[in-house]
């Protein structure tokens, strides 16, 4: 019974998030329901401030609510898998299968096919992984799942690197970012520009029914996108930006703030697309310069001096140009002269 829910007492100060208590009862977040699934329950071994753990908890609980608990989750190898299932413990309160790093999308295809063949296609399938298991080693399997339009929602929790193995570059690591394999040394410190994959746009190129992006700063948006995805059939893709205190060199308490800055700077556009066409985007409420997003992150420390002043204006300008392109491409500032 909705009316039996615990009254939500907290409200957020200094943010633009809509407090859950201001939302009508039936539209309240899945997390505000004391009977929520707790798909990823407490006690796991993620770092403090882990964006991925937060994103996975909200995404899966929303999917569980949308499917009335009739959900099977396939996980690729990575942080999320390692910190949640050190034998003999598991944090998953959802039917959960981990096979390999590269094959989560294919395994999910198999789960969906097996459920259909055994007459249980009321059970829905979510596959999830990090950016490595999505954009790099798992991309072939993901693309195959997309083009076959298999009935799977694939969620990528993108922390922009191989954090579990010690912060190496992936194909979603941004330009200039320091990782263990794109060191902050030499004439062009950090990751090269002009590389990398925009997986959400690659997903759109497959013309699948639904593609969306989200961040862990706007969890209500994340939940509603998962619910929208679960209301559809066929291949669906959700790309969630999840800051990583370890890999980004940021404070645990800043995870949400950085996710919000990624959006408010235009660096990470938040949008939805259906059958290859963008259908909506979340506008920037307070457009912010990219250096505000970069400065708190140690992986970009080589762009600033100790006082926080920009020492590589050309590099910051290049990142700003990428953000500005996103703002134009997704109409993130509606009033701006296109």
């Amino acid at each position: 019974m909705l009316s039996e829910r615990t009254p939500v007492r907290f409200y957020q100060v200094g943010s633009f998030a809509v407090g859950n208590r201001l939302v009508e009862l039936e539209r309240r977040s899945a997390q505000s329901d004391p009977r929520r699934a707790n798909s990823l329950s407490s006690g796991h071994r993620a770092c403090a401030g882990c964006g991925e753990a937060l994103g996975a908890r909200y995404a899966l609980d929303a999917a569980m609510r949308a499917t009335r608990g009739q959900l099977i989750c396939v996980n690729s190898t990575g942080c999320l898998e390692v910190f949640s299932t050190p034998y003999p413990e598991t944090s998953w309160r959802v039917a959960w299968l981990h096979s390999l790093f590269a094959n989560a999308a294919s395994v999910a295809t198999g789960v969906a096919a097996g459920l259909r063949a055994t007459g249980r296609d009321v059970v829905r399938v979510v596959a999830q992984g990090g950016d490595g298991g999505t954009a790099d080693i798992g991309f072939g399997a993901l693309s195959g799942m997309f083009e076959r339009n298999d009935d799977v929602l694939f969620i990528c929790y993108d922390n922009q690197g191989y954090m579990n193995t010690g912060v190496q570059r992936s194909s979603t690591t941004p330009g200039a970012a320091r990782t263990a394999t794109t060191q902050a040394v030499g004439p062009q410190p950090g990751n090269a520009f002009g590389q990398g994959k925009d997986v959400a746009r690659l997903a759109m190129a497959h013309e699948i029914p639904y593609v969306a992006t989200a961040t862990v700063a706007d969890l209500f948006d994340l939940e509603s996108k998962v619910e929208r995805a679960m209301s559809l059939h066929g291949a669906r893709y959700l790309h969630v930006l999840v800051p990583c205190p370890l890999g980004w060199g940021t404070l645990s308490k800043d995870t949400i703030a950085l996710a919000r800055l990624a959006h408010e700077t235009g660096i990470f556009p938040v949008f939805e697309a259906e059958y290859g066409e963008v259908t909506s985007s979340v506008p920037l409420r307070h457009r912010t310069a990219v250096e505000e997003y970069l400065r708190p992150q140690k992986r970009f420390a080589h762009l600033f001096d100790k006082s926080g002043a920009v020492t590589s204006p050309d590099v910051v300008a290049r990142i700003q140009a990428l953000a500005d392109r996103n703002i134009r491409r997704y109409s993130l500032v509606p009033d701006e002269d296109q």
Partner: peptide, 28 residues
């Protein structure tokens, strides 16, 4: 009857689909 045929994108996918299907109790 009640058989799904999946044209996969690689042999890695072939065995992975079989793994997923078998894990939900389908003869693969």
């Amino acid at each position: 009857d009640n058989c799904e045929f999946v044209n996969v994108d690689s042999e890695m996918a072939a065995m992975s689909v079989a793994i997923g299907a078998s894990a939900v109790g389908a003869r693969s």
